[in-house]
């Protein structure tokens, strides 16, 4: 994955707060099933992702990709690296 030194460092999706907007820079998972599902749901490198909210008691994140809203557990969100914009 290309890295530009002047851009802010990438961080896992799970580290973002509601209201944050970020660009997906990579999916880091050896789990093929998860990878395929994320791709099919539109989680591709370069896409913009908006954090809508987090569920009570450390539950899943609600994120928006284009016109689709997704629920993603923090375990899975750990594996997606993003760069805040």
């Amino acid at each position: 994955m290309p890295k530009v030194s002047s851009a802010p460092a990438s961080e896992p999706l799970s580290g973002l707060r509601p209201g944050d907007i970020a660009t997906i820079v990579g999916l880091h998972t050896a789990d093929d099933a998860l990878r395929q599902r994320l791709l099919a749901l539109g989680m591709r490198t370069g896409k913009t992702i908006i954090i809508m909210r987090q569920a009570p008691f450390g539950g899943p994140l609600q994120v928006r990709l284009g016109s689709t809203d997704l629920l993603i557990r923090t375990n899975e969100a750990d594996k997606i690296s993003v760069r805040k914009t």
Partner: peptide
Amino acid sequence: SDEPFVLELPP
């Protein structure tokens, strides 16, 4: 579950 938990939230 062997499936990833990524659910869609439809309008």
